[in-house]
Design a binder for these strands. Structure first.
Lengths: 146, 146
DNA sequence: GTAGCAATTCAAGTCGACTTGAGGTCAAGA
DNA sequence: TCTTGACCTCAAGTCGACTTGAATTGCTAC
């Protein structure tokens, strides 16, 4: 298997070398060894980095990402907790859709101030309704395995 | 018009008083005056704070939010730039959808490591394709008005 | 062997969005 | 009038995710 050094990984993914080191330190990825001081990575980390980047843009913390798709390939979160994360994303997607509609509306609206615009107010009410309607699901505690 | 003090605003919106002061300092909201030292706000800021909170969960910086829905009610961004923001949100929504599908899949997948799972790899390819396909639209420079 | 150069370590710095803490002020109620 | 408590200001601290800088290290090429 061909091994890649950090500059190669960085070039192909667009992730800074310092960030890659940082991810290894936090346990999100692993290097397969060294040539001298230099880390060597398998090509798999290219996908892993894509996943990390994706998770980050979704607003997840690095620790969360590590738990969802650890470098070992087995998630450290239970199935119910993974579904909670997915549900969280569904709500986030809804919120973003409302916001996007608001921005599009602000771009076109003729009203002197968007706060006075009835349609805008309606969108705000929608977002408030969603917020209130949101079920505050608790994290299911992980059971330590025997 | 009934004026509200900071604790009332905080109670109704769930936003900490220190954060509300911070937003005023950054120009996202304005208080209508003081009674003694204490700020007085119009009820409008309740909606404005809802909007700020929404923008934040979408990953926008406070400065961006201020430009999109300033306290004066007129966006400081041009129509094209607002549409760019909306497009940005559309892409973000797509990314989140892919990630959500990945997480749901990881929760159910029987494969020993998700990186080995063909379906998972396919999802990664989808997200990479979207990333590459993404048009890097530049911010349209604002023209200073005469 | 030695110069060059990329990669390394480790500590410290940065950035945004607040929070915290110390000390101050003032409208309102007893 | 005096006390109380909420709110104030201002500086400093925190947190996550890196970045930066200085001082090594060790392949590779000459």
């Amino acid at each position: 298997m061909k091994l890649l050094d950090i500059s190669e990984i960085s070039k192909q993914t667009g992730v800074a070398a310092s960030a890659i080191r940082h991810y290894e330190e936090k346990g999100l990825i692993t290097s397969l060894g060294r040539r001298g001081l230099k880390r060597l990575f398998s090509a798999d980390v290219l996908d892993q980095l894509a996943l990390i980047t994706l998770g980050k843009t979704a607003g997840f913390a690095l620790d969360d990402i590590a738990k969802m798709f650890g470098p070992d390939g087995r998630p450290a979160l239970s199935r119910p907790n993974l579904h909670l994360k997915a549900d969280e994303l569904d709500r986030q997607i809804e919120r973003l859709s409302v916001l996007r509609d608001m921005i599009r509306h602000v771009a076109e609206c003729k009203a002197p101030s968007h706060m006075e615009c009835p349609k805008f107010q309606q969108l705000i009410r929608i977002s408030n309704r969603r917020k209130r309607g949101r079920v505050e699901k608790k994290r299911v505690p992980e059971r330590s395995k025997p």
